Computed example of a mutant assay.
Amino acid sequence: MLRRVFVAGASVGLSAVTRAQPRKKIVVGFVAWWPAGMEKDYVPRLRKGLAAYGYVEPQTLELMVTFAGGDAGVTCDATKRMVMAGVDVIVVTATPAATIVKEETQTTQTPVVMAPVSDPLATGLVQSIARPGGNLTGMSMAGPDLSGKRLQVLRDIMPKLEVLAFVGSNRDSNSKTFAASLERAAAQAGVKLIVRMVDSPEQIDDALMVDLKRAGVQALNIQPIFVGQHVKVVETATRAGLPTTSDFPPFADAGSLFTYGLDGRVCAERAAYFIDRIVKGTKPADLPIELPTQFTLVVNRKAAAHFGLTLPQSVLAQADEIIE
């Protein structure tokens, strides 16, 4: 299994951290864009990370947690409650939520840790990777272009792939970045790419699948913003006979052919490093954004068998996890 490693900026390695025992009880808010059903995947990892630094409920830690289910109003209200409660730090996942949290913390400058977002620089959440400025720091999914690697693995499994679809969200400012990256990779590979943007996960339905199949689509790449609705999305595509791929491992758990990318659950645990630095006096503006350098390939042998596909040894040899 590959270790998930982050670097600060483009080239600065992680230094050893001295885990001193905290001197006071801290209050941490956690605002996730995902639905409540994913709380069990993320909150325990945050608790685990904080415990390593000596922050344990109820003695030295209080958590305020909201999983917003993709609802901007819920995200906004939760952030306001946390700010009014005087939390020390707010941890946030996904660009749409981070954008709202940034706006709601401008007056108080409450520190915010992104864990993670897709590309905080491209979306204007931070001023730079090395010196974020403002009150936000944390982790970015932006790093090496993963679209080419993901497409390569898919073509290894489906050598006759000619038409691929990307399904993204109109509500995420990173969607165009995801689509453009995949368009470049597809053009280089000689694969036709069809892009479909939706306003909500509910629009990834049987009718959309029929439309894509009529266009000759043979497989789907799903934007990771739909994690949380991944089970329904994957089931809908599978029912239509379309294999899916994405970034986050939960998609593979739900029946995607494979996933390749960053594991957001690891980021929830890593957020503790930033929280500890901030409560001990370091300003978010001075904490470089961490970029991932290693990623996880999860392949689903059962899903491959369902579609009559064989996972080649070259793919299995690269896999960090194989779902039987």
Rank of each mutant, 00 (worst) to 15 (best):
residue 17 V to E: 09
residue 19 R to I: 00
residue 21 Q to Y: 07
residue 30 F to T: 04
residue 41 D to F: 15
residue 43 V to T: 14
residue 50 L to K: 09
residue 62 E to I: 12
residue 62 E to S: 14
residue 66 T to W: 02
residue 69 G to Q: 06
residue 80 K to E: 02
residue 81 R to L: 05
residue 81 R to T: 00
residue 82 M to H: 08
residue 93 T to S: 15
residue 109 Q to M: 13
residue 111 P to W: 06
residue 113 V to C: 02
residue 114 M to H: 04
residue 115 A to H: 07
residue 128 S to R: 12
residue 129 I to T: 09
residue 138 G to I: 02
residue 144 P to W: 07
residue 149 K to R: 15
residue 152 Q to W: 10
residue 156 D to H: 14
residue 160 K to Q: 12
residue 164 L to S: 06
residue 168 G to V: 03
residue 181 S to L: 05
residue 186 A to T: 07
residue 192 K to A: 15
residue 196 R to L: 00
residue 201 P to K: 03
residue 202 E to C: 13
residue 211 D to H: 13
residue 215 A to G: 04
residue 222 I to R: 01
residue 229 Q to I: 00
residue 232 K to E: 06
residue 236 T to I: 05
residue 244 T to P: 02
residue 246 S to F: 02
residue 257 L to F: 11
residue 265 R to N: 00
residue 267 C to Q: 14
residue 269 E to M: 13
residue 270 R to P: 02
residue 279 V to G: 05
residue 284 P to T: 12
residue 285 A to W: 00
residue 291 L to W: 08
residue 292 P to F: 04
residue 294 Q to W: 05
residue 296 T to K: 15
residue 301 R to Y: 03
residue 309 L to K: 12
residue 310 T to F: 02
residue 311 L to E: 01
residue 311 L to F: 05
residue 313 Q to C: 09
residue 313 Q to E: 13
residue 320 D to N: 15
